[in-house]
Simulated scan of single mutants.
Amino acid sequence: MLGGEALDSSRNTATLRLKDGAVDVKDGPYAETKEVLAGFNVLEARDLNHAIALMSTHPGLKAGPFEIRAADEGVSRMFEKHQAANDERK
């Protein structure tokens, strides 16, 4: 595994999509069975509203929705400690 990041609860999620040429923001995840995860972006933002503002201008929004979810920093720190312990054993 090259890396990873735990995600915060889906209760703290916003989904962006273009609707009639404007960015439409919905609270929570929004998935249809035809949608698939095509990739992910990691960005630095002050909070969810800042992340929405940043991603509202992303050209990929024309191709489909973006779900914005914060990283779970507690779980991420746990993974980092585990990785560091593994690196020390090598």
Rank of each mutant, 00 (worst) to 15 (best):
M1L: 03
A6E: 04
L7I: 11
D8S: 14
D8C: 10
S9Q: 08
S10T: 11
R11E: 12
R11N: 07
A14G: 01
A14D: 06
T15N: 01
T15C: 02
L18I: 15
L18D: 05
K19V: 10
G21N: 04
A22R: 15
V23Q: 09
K26T: 10
D27G: 05
G28I: 10
A31W: 14
A31S: 07
E32K: 13
E32V: 07
T33F: 14
T33V: 12
K34S: 14
V36W: 06
G39N: 05
F40Y: 15
F40D: 08
N41T: 13
L43P: 03
R46F: 10
L48K: 11
N49R: 15
H50M: 04
H50G: 04
H50Y: 06
A51W: 00
A51M: 06
A51Y: 03
A51L: 00
A51H: 03
L54Y: 08
L54R: 13
M55E: 03
S56N: 04
H58K: 00
P59F: 02
G60F: 07
L61W: 05
L61T: 07
L61I: 10
K62A: 08
A63M: 00
A63K: 06
G64A: 06
E67K: 04
E67A: 02
E67S: 01
R69L: 08
R69I: 13
R69T: 08
A70D: 05
A70E: 10
E73C: 02
V75G: 05
S76D: 07
S76Y: 03
M78S: 14
M78L: 15
M78N: 13
F79N: 12
F79W: 14
E80K: 13
E80D: 10
E80W: 01
E80N: 12
K81V: 09
K81I: 12
H82I: 12
Q83H: 14
A84W: 11
A84K: 15
A85F: 04
N86R: 14
D87Q: 14
D87F: 15
